[in-house]
Structure formats: structure tokens, C-alpha cells
């Protein structure tokens, strides 16, 4: 499918096969088939309501798929709680609304999961947490509360919080959509560095510049279906499908 998965028969990091998802009688996902290789960065774009968020929320089972299979690093998601926990430990997620824990300091936000889930002692966890905050360049905010930070800073804390679990996959659900324009850049830079470091990522976004520069593949969704998949180059210069052309014409 692409040129990036040169490490031949390796198991894909994420595998979705014939996935259907319903909300009541509304079908949010229709026969989704997607493979994400190790270290691959996939950007998902599409009009609102097209199922982009639902798709990535199925990867860490914040939404339960109704048909088909979802595998993360070879672990199949089912009702088995232990399997779900196992996948979530390997999968970080960054939300549109940041969802930082407002009653904890920035450092406590970042160290909570390493301490409770990975059972790291406090000093080890704080060392790790500080290095993650340095990675997103806000170590000086460690002892503040989330409410005292700007939106861009909060989102970078959210990234650090996920990274502190040392995940194999990072999911981004419109990470810059709730930000003021001047703060979008700092978050995208952190994400770009992460991609360069070899993280496997699925990013739902409207930032076409980011998609063009960072994505290995772009997935275009509409009405719960994957309409077109391709390299950014192909995707932005010579889209095949009419729906894709229409969408690109609207936003570019």
C-alpha cells in the first residue's frame, strides 16, 4: 500500500478489519479496514460527523465496535477487561479538550498513570515526568495547576502525560481544534518531533499543513467510510475520488 512498511512481514501495529459501529440506529463506521505499520504516521481527515473520532476511539476501546476486529500490537480488543487494559497501557491518547485533571498539578497529571498503572515509585515517576515535560518544553510549569496554563501549554502537558506511559501508539483526536491560532504551532511542533522520533501515530486533524509535512499516509473519511487512502503527495495533488476533491476544494 505504501513505501514506508519496508520492514517486510512485521505484524502491523494497528489492524482494523471490517469494523462497524452503531450509535442506536445510526451507523457511525461502515466496514472500516485499516492497517497502520510500526513507526507510521497516519493522518485522518474528513468532514465533521464522518466518523474520524469514532474510528480512533475504537482503537483504545473508548468506543466499542459492533462488528469486525480491532488489533493493537497483536492484542485483539474484546470485552475482556485485561486485554483492554493491556492495549490502553500501550496506547496514548490526546483529546480535543485536553482533559487534564484539574485538581492535580501538572507534574501529578503526568506521573499519575506511571505510578498507579506501571507502579513506579514516586521519585522515579517524577524523574520520568520531568523528562517528558522537558520534551514538550514546559518543565517550568510542573508545579502549576492546569487551569493556570494557556491552552497550548495544557495540550502539551496532555501529550507529556500520555508519553509518560511510554506508549507504542499515540492517538490524537483533533488536538488543535480547541486552541487559539497562535497556540496551534507549539502543539504541532511537539507532535512533529514525536513523529520524527519514530512514534506510531494516528492523527485526526484539520491541519492540512501538518498532514502534508508529517503524514506517511492520509486517510479521507466521509459518512463513516474510508473513501480514499494515499501518500500526502498523491492525496493533495492528484486525489482520485470526487468526494475527496470536493472536500479539498472546500478547505484549501
Amino acid at each position: 500500500m505504501t513505501e514506508t512498511t519496508t520492514t517486510a512481514p512485521a505484524q502491523p501495529m494497528i489492524l482494523m478489519e471490517h469494523v462497524d459501529k452503531f450509535f442506536g440506529s445510526f451507523q457511525a463506521l461502515k466496514d472500516i479496514n485499516l492497517e497502520v505499520g510500526r513507526k507510521e504516521v497516519v493522518v485522518v481527515i474528513g468532514p465533521s460527523g464522518s466518523g474520524k473520532s469514532t474510528l480512533i476511539r475504537c482503537v483504545n476501546r473508548l468506543e466499542k465496535h459492533d462488528r469486525g476486529r480491532v488489533l493493537v500490537d497483536g492484542i485483539e480488543l474484546s470485552d475482556d477487561v485485561r486485554k483492554i487494559q493491556e492495549v490502553r497501557r500501550e496506547t496514548g491518547m490526546v483529546f480535543q479538550q485536553f482533559n487534564l485533571f484539574p485538581h492535580l498539578t501538572v507534574l501529578d497529571n503526568v506521573t499519575l498513570a506511571p505510578r498507579q498503572v506501571r507502579r513506579l515509585p514516586r521519585d522515579k515517576a517524577e524523574e520520568l515526568g520531568m523528562s517528558m515535560l522537558e520534551q514538550v518544553r514546559i518543565p517550568e510549569q510542573a508545579h502549576k495547576f492546569p487551569g493556570q496554563l494557556s491552552g497550548g501549554q495544557q495540550q502539551r502537558v496532555a501529550i507529556a502525560r500520555s508519553l509518560a506511559m511510554q506508549p507504542k501508539v499515540m492517538l490524537f483526536d483533533e488536538p488543535t481544534s480547541a486552541l487559539d491560532p497562535e497556540m496551534i504551532k507549539e502543539v504541532l511542533e511537539s507532535m512533529e518531533e514525536l513523529a520524527t522520533s519514530g512514534m506510531t501515530m494516528i492523527v485526526v486533524t484539520h491541519e492540512m499543513g501538518f498532514a502534508r509535512a508529517v503524514a506517511d499516509r492520509v486517510v479521507f473519511m466521509a459518512d463513516g467510510q474510508i473513501v480514499e487512502v494515499g501518500t500526502p503527495e498523491h492525496f493533495f495533488t492528484a486525489p482520485r475520488e470526487d468526494r475527496t476533491k470536493q472536500f479539498l476544494a472546500q478547505i484549501l
Partner: peptide, 24 residues
């Protein structure tokens, strides 16, 4: 979003209730 964030970090339902939901 708070429980979703806690779940996405791998916290169990009990941990999430105790450390995230209950204090707030």
C-alpha cells in the same frame, strides 16, 4: 472527558474513581 482520559492512560475503573472522579 475525565474518565475517558483516565481510561486512556490505562487506569482501572477503581483507580479512576478514586483518584480522578471522587476528588473532583
Amino acid at each position: 472527558g475525565q474518565t475517558e482520559a483516565a481510561a486512556s492512560l490505562g487506569l482501572t475503573a477503581f483507580q479512576s474513581t478514586r483518584s480522578i472522579v471522587m476528588p473532583q
